[in-house]
Amino acid sequence: MNEPARSTSRAERRRGTEERILGAARDLFARHGYERATIRAVAAAAGVDPALVMQYFGSKAALFARAAEVRVPEGGAGLGEGPDGAVTALLASLGVKLDGLPATSLATLRSMLTHPDAAEHARTTLGRQIDEIAAGLPATPDARARAALAVTTVVGATIGHQLLGLPDLRDTAVEHLTDLLRPALHALLEPAEPPKGEDLS
């Protein structure tokens, strides 16, 4: 009758070890980027043998993919609810990021321009946001381009604030930054009204 308890205990220990490795990986990828964060360094930070890291994850690329997973879609509810909903969701997402970017997102941002695996992860994550926003916009030929510009505007602000530490962004209250961005995002996501009297047929 004790066997199930031992099995559960082994499973819990395995999950605990896996989470410890992932925590160390997130921290090292976020601080050093993909290239400089080695399996040996991750193992040392997690207090395990490097062979165990490989046993659990198979490769450094697979470890990065797991470490950089975003469990809650960035932007949250509202991305597909038209221009107003998308702007509100993007600005809420930006506020969370500027208050302290999660190590998962920071790891991806720091590495996405230098390593193909990180770049692909970023494209997939941002692509989902663009798909959702574009689906909620008026059906214009440039709806996807508008959505992509809005998403990358928020990414650029995040990079400037979190990775580059630009003083003009760091020294400005998050609430004021979002207020400044709001009309720019609305301008991107709301198609311009055609001049009165212009025949578009």
Results as ranks from 00 to 15, higher is better:
residue 155 V to D: 08
residue 5 A to V: 13
residue 34 Y to N: 00
residue 114 T to I: 00
residue 188 L to A: 08
residue 87 V to P: 10
residue 163 L to W: 08
residue 103 A to E: 07
residue 113 L to S: 08
residue 96 V to S: 04
residue 65 A to K: 08
residue 127 G to D: 11
residue 93 S to R: 03
residue 185 L to S: 01
residue 98 L to H: 00
residue 117 D to H: 11
residue 2 N to I: 11
residue 133 I to M: 05
residue 87 V to R: 05
residue 35 E to W: 04
residue 123 R to F: 14
residue 126 L to Q: 13
residue 63 L to R: 05
residue 158 T to N: 07
residue 24 A to S: 09
residue 177 L to D: 11
residue 133 I to H: 03
residue 7 S to D: 14
residue 1 M to Y: 12
residue 167 P to A: 07
residue 55 Q to C: 00
residue 39 I to W: 09
residue 115 H to K: 07
residue 45 A to L: 11
residue 88 T to L: 13
residue 123 R to Q: 13
residue 132 E to G: 01
residue 30 A to F: 03
residue 188 L to R: 01
residue 200 L to W: 15
residue 13 R to M: 05
residue 122 A to N: 10
residue 4 P to M: 04
residue 12 E to F: 10
residue 135 A to R: 04
residue 4 P to R: 05
residue 169 L to G: 03
residue 106 L to D: 02
residue 182 R to T: 00
residue 188 L to H: 06
residue 62 A to M: 11
residue 22 L to S: 02
residue 96 V to P: 01
residue 170 R to P: 01
residue 55 Q to F: 14
residue 5 A to F: 12
residue 149 L to G: 03
residue 187 A to P: 00
residue 146 R to Q: 11
residue 124 T to E: 15
residue 47 G to M: 09
residue 48 V to Y: 02
residue 56 Y to C: 07
residue 47 G to T: 09
residue 176 H to T: 14
residue 5 A to L: 14
